[in-house]
Design a binder for these strands. Structure first.
Lengths: 107, 107
DNA sequence: CGGCGCTGTATCGGATTTCTACATAGGGTG
DNA sequence: CACCCTATGTAGAAATCCGATACAGCGCCG
């Protein structure tokens, strides 16, 4: 898990039913294409993400066909857990239990 | 910002007055030394972290001297903001506003 | 007294990941 | 025809992570 990957997962998880495409995710996450597309490919390879070409006539639509991405059921589970771990890492209050200060330096 | 860096900042921010040393942070964050020490060095270079050797006689103490790390005032501010951004990225509910589903694929 | 484990800090090098450019390709506009 | 927009994607350099390894001294055990 890296932060760009987490951003992509968060965007997809915002509405797990809604298919997203690359340019869409670039705007949602703020990631450049050179980061986003490799991430999407890796998520596919991991089986977290399914991809399909939009079935549209580019000429009629007046734009290139999009490649739509949707989290797999496994991807939804995994993404939820990954984000939960991230959340645990960045606590709101100082919930960082454990370990009293270990000792004072000489200063 | 990367996740290991965030872990270090979170550990230091749990009690910003408490000086921490390497092995301490390794246990708190779960990071291996090969990750932690470079992170600490980078944070120092960025001016977020101050470091000082413990002034203790290793023989008397029965252990090696520790190198204590403490967030600078700027480091505290920056760390708080960095963690706040991370938190915003991993929302609890689907607070991921903006952008309705952009369109439906053919499937 | 030799070996092992513990505390502590630290570097090296391979693998992974990020990001700045650039590439491609078609449509619309001035 | 030049230029911008949508859209996906690759190449190469730089940053980063992490397992392995290093070093050094102390204490313990047989």
């Amino acid at each position: 898990m890296t932060i760009p990957v987490a951003k992509v997962l968060a965007a997809l998880l915002a509405d797990p039913e809604a298919p997203r495409y690359g340019l869409d995710l670039m705007k949602l996450t703020g990631l450049p294409s050179g980061t986003l597309y490799p991430v999407l490919h890796r998520l596919q390879a991991a089986g977290w993400l399914a991809a399909d070409w939009e079935e549209v006539d580019p000429v009629a639509a007046g734009r290139p066909a999009r490649r739509y991405y949707l989290l797999t059921p496994e991807g939804v589970r995994a993404a939820r857990q990954a984000l939960a771990e991230l959340r645990a890492l960045a606590p709101d209050g100082r919930a960082w239990g454990g370990a009293e200060p270990t000792g004072a330096p000489a200063w």
